[in-house]
Structure formats: structure tokens, C-alpha cells
Design a binder for these strands. Structure first.
Lengths: 163, 163
DNA sequence: TCATACCACTTGCGAAGTGCAAGTGGTCGA
DNA sequence: TCGACCACTTGCACTTCGCAAGTGGTATGA
């Protein structure tokens, strides 16, 4: 089967799927912010994503197998978005992006706390986090320790210290 | 100093610099293909980058400190582009992108060979490769072993086997 | 020295992506 | 049954992208 797109290079193909200014922001918010519906993703967006762009990205990411959508039993109209195994495997990539951004951009201290923890924790922490994401998004058994909780707590502590 | 851009999140800021379909392709070709001039980057581009887009990216990447340009002593008009420490530190990111693309996209076997080696080699191999890039681009001393050569040889072997 | 090829980069233009504001049509709670 | 809510669409101005052709300076060989 011939590879589609501009070339068969794996880096290129990754860029073709994720190389825009919003796709990974959406994945990030699902992953680290546990935002699961259109409304949550739109309202709590740190970067102020436009509603049409969000709708478009949810559609594309779902079509390419990085997200799934299931109806909310509480609310007919609402959909609940989940990560898939493919997007859960983006954890190391996002961790590295955070680490790089922390060093080479003017990142704010509070928002860098999670990136810092992930960097310090290394591959073992990423694995634990991925296991937890499999629990939250794919129905896998709940792991003992919550990395998600630790990241969240560190972030909230940093925000409190700032204020 | 307040962070610029959409938000101070390090992942977001990384995306604002590199989140498009071409910037990392240019870095990849400089890094793994050792293409150092506009002409080399344009002619050997696997993905067929457009000349104006290449010119624009070289300008932007240089402006944001990911590349430097110095004149070619052999040829008045030509410039030689080099990676900087910041872009050399993208090695782990590109390695992960390759690894992810290899698993989750229809990457071609030949072009995946380098990604596979980088993935197997892990952090130690990345460090060695970065050391070598510092030699090639920043004038650091030449390291003993050439990762670049090994990657290149593996790629060429794969291409030969295909033909 | 002059024609020719080369080379880095620009220009023009249609197509696609982005940002913003308003709208739509179904759903929920009182 | 009314009004608030919610997921998502539409319309429009603006920017970016992709492609093809062009421009003007530079090396080269007769």
C-alpha cells in the first residue's frame, strides 16, 4: 500500500496530521485538562480557540482516529470526546514539547509547572500517566497512583502562590 | 516579562513557533539530511516544498533563533544555514515524532529506518547525535562515533534493498 | 568580455485556513 | 410551554499556502 500525502517519511506524516496551530492544543486540553465536551473545550480554552475551528478539529481528529465521540447519556445533544490509544501515545511528544518550550520560549511559570514535573518524571512517569489516561478514556482499570491528580495539584498550588 | 502570544503555556508557545506544516520539515532536512543551503533544501526536498515557503521559513526560523545564516565564502550569493543549540535540542522531539508516525501513520519502510534506529537507541543515542550536530553546526569538537553516518548508512542500505 | 547557465529569492494569484460575530435548531429545566 | 442553554454552522474579512513564472545578481566558459 503506497503511503499517502507528500511523502512516506514518518515525521512528515505526523506533521500532516498534527502540524497546525490547534490540533495538539485540543489534544492537550483533553489530556491534561480532562475536558471532554465541546462546551468545556471552548469555554476553558486558555488560548481562546474559535468555535468553528474547534468544531473542525474535533471532526478531523475523530476522522483520523485520534479521538472518539460518544453521546452523553445525560444530554441528548452533547457528545463526550475521548482519547484513543493513538493519541495517548502522544504523551511523550507533548512532554518533550513542554520541556522544549519551557527552555526556549517565554513560557509562564505557572503553566510550566506540569511540564516541569513531566520532564523530571521521565519515561516512567509518562507510562503511569498513559495508564491513567487509558483508565479515564478507554475504560481500563484504574491505576494505583494518580499522575493526573499530582499534575493538577501542582498547577493549582502554583496558581495559588501567584495570587 | 509577560509571555507573548495566545498563552504562556509552553506547549502552546512551541506550537506557535513550530506548529505548521513546514518548519519542522526544514529543520529535519538540515538535521538528518545535512542540507545547508537554500538550493540543497529546495532541490532534495522529499515533500516538494515551494520556493517561497522555503524562503519564508528560513527567514522565520532564523529570526526566532532556530537557525543562523552565514555567507558562503565560495559563492557570494549563497548562504549556509546552521542549526543552533535551540534547534539541536529538538532532536528528542523529532525522534518521538518519527516513532509515533511509524506506528500510527502509513509511513514507508525505507524512510522509517532512521526513525527506528533513533527509537531503539533512546536518549543516549540522541545525546550522541546532538553532540555530533554541535560539531557539524556549531564548531564543537568532533565526537568519536558518527551517529549521522550510521543513520545515513542504514537509510541507504534500505533504499538499496528496495531497488 | 560577453553570452549563458545558475542561483537565491520575489511576485501574482487562486485556494485553503483562521478569527470573529451572529445565527440555527434541537434540548433541558421550571 | 417558555426561556435559557448548548453543539455546531454560516458569513465575511483577513492571512497563509501552493504553484508557476519572473527577477536580478553571480559564477563560468568561449
Amino acid at each position: 500500500m503506497p503511503p499517502k500525502g507528500r511523502s512516506g517519511c514518518p515525521i512528515n506524516l505526523t506533521l500532516e496530521q498534527l502540524g497546525d496551530r490547534w490540533s495538539l492544543i485540543v489534544v492537550r486540553d483533553l489530556m491534561f485538562g480532562n475536558r471532554r465536551t465541546y462546551g468545556e473545550l471552548l469555554a476553558a480554552s486558555e488560548e481562546g480557540i474559535a468555535s468553528n475551528v474547534l468544531a473542525d478539529r474535533l471532526k478531523r481528529l475523530t476522522a483520523s482516529g485520534l479521538l472518539t465521540r460518544r453521546p452523553d447519556p445525560q444530554h441528548q445533544q452533547k457528545g463526550i470526546y475521548s482519547l484513543t490509544e493513538a493519541s495517548i501515545q502522544l504523551v511523550p511528544l507533548l512532554a518533550h514539547m513542554g520541556a522544549w518550550g519551557r527552555r526556549h520560549t517565554r513560557a509562564s511559570k505557572e503553566l510550566s509547572v506540569r511540564a516541569e514535573l513531566l520532564e523530571e518524571g521521565g519515561a516512567r512517569l509518562w507510562s503511569a500517566f498513559m495508564e491513567e489516561l487509558r483508565h479515564l478514556h478507554l475504560g481500563a482499570p484504574r491505576p494505583r497512583r494518580s499522575v493526573f491528580g499530582a499534575l493538577q495539584a501542582a498547577y493549582e498550588k502554583a496558581m495559588a502562590q501567584k495570587a
